[in-house]
């Protein structure tokens, strides 16, 4: 199964989110979290801002690698689960904020080495994405890293067709069950560049429908 559309259903019920995500990505979501954390923590003690931390799966990996994390999510139920998951985190290594992505503009400028966002840009409107990417740029120190994992349209036409076919029933189900609908992003790399970043690496997963993108704020 290659689609992340069902994720919307899972988000409507935070307590089944983690198990459900493992199921619909055939276990690969755990790998994804690890990869994202690997590219996100250049050294122990790095200051990481995580947008849309959800139940804290990526947060856990970031903290395990010695990062000092500020993790935000707008869903209080998700945050509750994240707090539970990370209650053993070392003192001072972790701050949770109940806030929207757009509100990162209130955090200190150039205050972070890394900004991480997993599966949340595809939930935003275009204007919101542009705003958040720009705000993320300003939160980063020069040479700071932006690491994003998100659902995108595959690049090759045959993959796009296959992906659309596989996605449709799941998206329909998610729409009926959870009232959530998202569009895969068309060109995330371009939007990231438009905010001033330089894209350093991009990996595609799941038939090219999931991207893991690394970009840098030029020094």
């Amino acid at each position: 199964m290659s689609s992340l559309a069902l994720m919307r259903f899972l988000e409507a019920a935070p307590h089944r989110y983690d198990a459900g995500m493992r199921l619909i990505t055939l276990g690969r979501v755990t790998l994804l979290h690890r990869l994202l954390a690997e590219v996100s923590v250049p050294r122990p003690g790095a200051h990481v801002l995580e947008i849309g931390c959800g139940t804290g799966a990526v947060t856990e990996q970031l903290v395990a690698r010695g990062a000092v994390v500020t993790a935000l999510d707008q869903n209080p139920e998700m945050l509750e689960l994240a707090r539970k998951r990370l209650r053993e985190a070392p003192n001072g290594s972790l701050t949770f904020l109940e806030s929207t992505a757009a509100e990162i503009d209130g955090l200190p400028e150039a205050g972070f080495d890394v900004v991480v966002a997993s599966l949340c840009f595809s939930e935003m409107s275009e204007s919101e994405r542009a705003y958040v990417l720009k705000a993320a740029f300003q939160r980063l120190r020069p040479e700071g890293i932006l690491a994003v994992a998100d659902e995108v349209s595959p690049e090759r036409p045959w993959q796009r067709v296959l992906h659309a076919l596989l996605r449709l029933p799941q998206a329909g189900l998610a729409w009926l069950l959870a009232g959530r609908l998202t569009k895969p992003l068309r060109d995330l790399a371009e939007e990231v560049r438009a905010a001033g970043f330089e894209v350093r690496a991009e990996q595609r997963w799941l038939l090219g429908s999931l991207t893991v993108l690394q970009a840098e704020r030029p020094g």
């Binding site: 929207t100 757009a102 935003m124 009232g179 609908l181």
Partner: peptide, 30 residues
């Protein structure tokens, strides 16, 4: 504001139109 495509009352009662979505819309709509 992004209310997940749901009408105002249902979205507000169900957590899809909260303070966060209104703040997001006011900040990001320009």
């Amino acid at each position: 504001a992004p209310s997940s495509g749901i009408n105002v009352w249902c979205a507000a009662a169900g957590g899809h139109l909260t303070t966060h979505q209104v703040v997001t819309a006011l900040k990001t709509s320009g």
